[in-house]
């Protein structure tokens, strides 16, 4: 079997898990293996049904008191124990922060190789020598790797494919797996959560107004804030901005910040260095505002305005107000 470890947050499936099921469906078909899923710390019917809609035939569930909330060590040991019992041919998870972390925990516990953020996986006939194309530099560079492993542990590059339900969904069988977990694994389980902002966030906003070095100062972000608020969106920024201390790092779009997926990203005063582009490229549309027509961001955008953002952003706000009036 090919086993997909499902990432969920207290019962809500993560998009990365849907992507991993979609990716795994293709790989399982290629290898002539059934696609099964591992559900850790939950066994609710909705999650099982959703895994089925994405092609899982059997959903193995592990429930235990140390799995009451997310904890990398407890989840890693639970997944490792399921793998010991189920002997899958390969194991896959989504390439999200948690997905990669769980798989690293599994890799450490089973002393197996793990390959993160894969784009293409070729089992080469299934003799245990795999050819893999994976992301380096957050996807700015690709690596062809060879992997020798009887049981590869893999994650699929985040947002590198669209999650799609199967055309022929089966009603999946849910099957409980007994996992005996040491209570001490609770030492890394989430103790508390603090909500700083409700509603849309940078990673879920339908519109992101980005500001770069060209904005010039912390105060000069006010017009970007106004436009973002008007469109139900969020303000993002480049690494240069957070390095200057103009915005908190949680606003940073990029390889070391947030990967955004808005309907439109309005990138203003941003040159478009590789580090930033990695976080912006999953935007459905990009509009660049820049005084430099040669800027990387302008060249890669769908639309551009070659002018000073300090004049263009307020003009856009005014125009929306005028049309709404």
């Amino acid at each position: 079997m090919l086993l997909v470890v499902l990432e969920h947050d207290r019962g809500a499936m993560d998009e990365a898990a849907r992507e991993a099921l979609t990716f795994g469906r293709g790989l399982a078909a290629q290898m002539g293996l059934p696609l099964h899923a591992a559900l850790i710390g939950a066994n609710d019917a909705e999650l099982v049904a959703e895994a089925g809609a994405f092609g899982a035939e059997t959903v193995y569930t592990a429930v235990h008191e140390v799995l009451s909330d997310f904890g990398p060590e407890a989840w890693g040991e639970a997944a490792a124990e399921m793998i010991r019992q189920l002997n899958p041919r390969a194991v896959l998870a989504g390439g999200s922060e948690r997905g990669n972390e769980i798989m690293a925990q599994v890799a450490a516990r089973l002393d197996l190789p793990m390959v993160a953020n894969c784009l293409e996986i070729d089992p080469n006939g299934g003799a245990g020598e795999w050819t893999i194309t994976r992301q380096q530099w957050g996807g700015s560079l690709l690596e062809d790797a060879s992997l020798v492993s009887e049981r590869p542990l893999l994650t699929s590059g985040l947002h590198t494919l669209a999650a799609e339900q199967t055309d022929a969904p089966a009603v999946p069988v849910a099957q409980a797996v007994e996992v005996d977990l040491d209570p001490s694994l609770a030492r890394t389980v989430v103790k508390d959560r603090v909500v700083l902002e409700a509603g849309v966030t940078l990673s879920t906003a339908p519109v992101v107004i980005g500001g770069g070095r060209g904005v010039g100062s912390p105060e000069a972000f006010a017009p970007l804030e106004e436009l973002a608020a008007m469109l139900g969106g969020r303000v993002g920024c480049s690494r240069a901005v957070t390095n200057n201390g103009w915005r908190p790092h949680s606003d940073q779009v990029g390889q070391t910040g947030t990967r955004i997926t808005p309907e439109i990203y309005i990138a203003s005063g941003i040159s478009g260095a590789i580090q930033h582009w990695v976080g912006a490229k999953a935007s459905k549309h990009i509009l660049a505002i820049n005084i430099d027509p040669e800027a990387n961001m302008v060249v890669k955008a769908d639309w551009a305005v070659i002018a000073d953002l300090h004049e263009v952003i307020p003009a856009i706000t005014q125009e929306i107000k005028r049309r709404r009036a």
């Binding site: 309907e263 439109i264 027509p293 639309w303 070659i306």
Partner: peptide
């Protein structure tokens, strides 16, 4: 890349795009 303009007057074309995208 479609250049919508070289001055703040491009705002109108920008809002056309935003309306087209339904945002």
């Amino acid at each position: 890349t479609v250049i919508l303009g070289n001055s703040p007057e491009a705002a109108s074309a920008v809002v056309d795009v935003l309306e087209e995208l339904g945002v």
